[in-house]
Amino acid sequence: MADKLDVKQGTLALMILRTLEVLGPLHGYGVARRIEETSKNRLSLNYGTLYPALLKLEQEGCIVAEWRQSENNRRAKYYSLTPAGRKQLAREAREWHQTADLIAAFLAPRREAP
């Protein structure tokens, strides 16, 4: 529990979009579970973090929601990617890779004296 991380601003949207891309339509609980699993339980999402992010993506038109029957027979609100959401995911993923490379390059151990 000690090494739980806060979700970095802006990264949650990317995680949600990627989760929906990989797993297809999914409810909020499923999204939360998947993100926690992927992060090897280093991240934990409470409702107040997850649902505003979902709502924001919905308002931006990246995802759409509809009520469906879940696998174990409960009614749940399923979110799925829209074409706009796919594009948004591709763009954000690219930007994130670039940023990560950049930061990695900066933080790499010094090889030679200047």
């Binding site: 909020g28 609980y29 409702y47 649902y51 174990n72 409960r74 009614r75 749940a76």
Partner: peptide
């Protein structure tokens, strides 16, 4: 109302789990 339902269903599914 929609939001209440959604949060409730999340809670229920997690409890089931």
């Amino acid at each position: 109302r929609d939001l209440q339902d959604e949060l409730q269903s999340h809670l229920d599914m997690e409890t089931d789990e």
